[in-house]
Amino acid sequence: MRARFDPLTAALWTAAAAVFCFIYAPLAVVVLYSVHDAAIIAWPLRLGTLRWYGVLAHDRAMIDAAVASLKLAVLAVVIALGVGVPGAFVLDRFDFPGKAAFRRLVLLPLILPGIITGVSLLSFFSFVGLSLSSGFPLIPGWPVVLGHGAALTSVVVTQVFARLQRFDRALEEASADLYANEWRTFWRVTLPGIRPAVLGAALLVFTLSLDEIAVTFFLIGRQNTLPLQIWGLLRRGITPEVNAVATVIFALSLLTIVLWSRMMRDEI
């Protein structure tokens, strides 16, 4: 019947497999070279050492950068949720003049190249006179924290807004009908309904903040974030340590996406 060899389908599958390889081969290369037993990254590959992970574990500057990145990411999540969730509700439920403009404004950082947001915020903080190192060493610096918050709020807004649009408002009306006031309706009906979107957005913001360079680049003070620290190493030339840190980041990314997909699965 039709199970016989079909060149068109075969060609499609081949193309798909090739694209998969194109996407994954470079990542595999990095992971493989993280256990490459030589100081120079060259062909052929000599597998079988963990020493670059050892070097990484003792790299004070790298660890400081990682800690700074984590702090920054946590603060970015707090700000983005604090502003983004109400923002999504405003877009979903309130009418006010300039609402469309507000929406576009909030979504702008998503669509613009990061460098434009970066230089605008740099100009802004310099204009208002907020030092890039203010807040250091407790946090990496107020401008970079606010900058991440500003750039990533849009992620929360889109995710939560989309969820709210699908949210069945009759549930809230049912709750109101069953003697719950607005506050209790919000806590017991609305919030549980959008919780997966909020959690998913938080995770997304966390990951994006950890990896952010374009905005960070212009707003960072004395303390490098992890990507900037790596960038510095790369600018000086390739060291195998970079492969080790890249592999660690890769592993953590995988962990995050597994978490995220779990969350999204529970959503329905």
């Binding site: 990542l27 990896d211 790596i230 390739i238 890249a246 980041i249």
Partner: peptide
């Protein structure tokens, strides 16, 4: 397909330097 989007930008860019 979308996992690489979660993987550090720098890692993806830098891999090509090795290749």
């Amino acid at each position: 397909v979308i996992i690489p989007l979660w993987v550090s930008y720098l890692v993806r860019a830098y891999a090509w330097k090795i290749i």
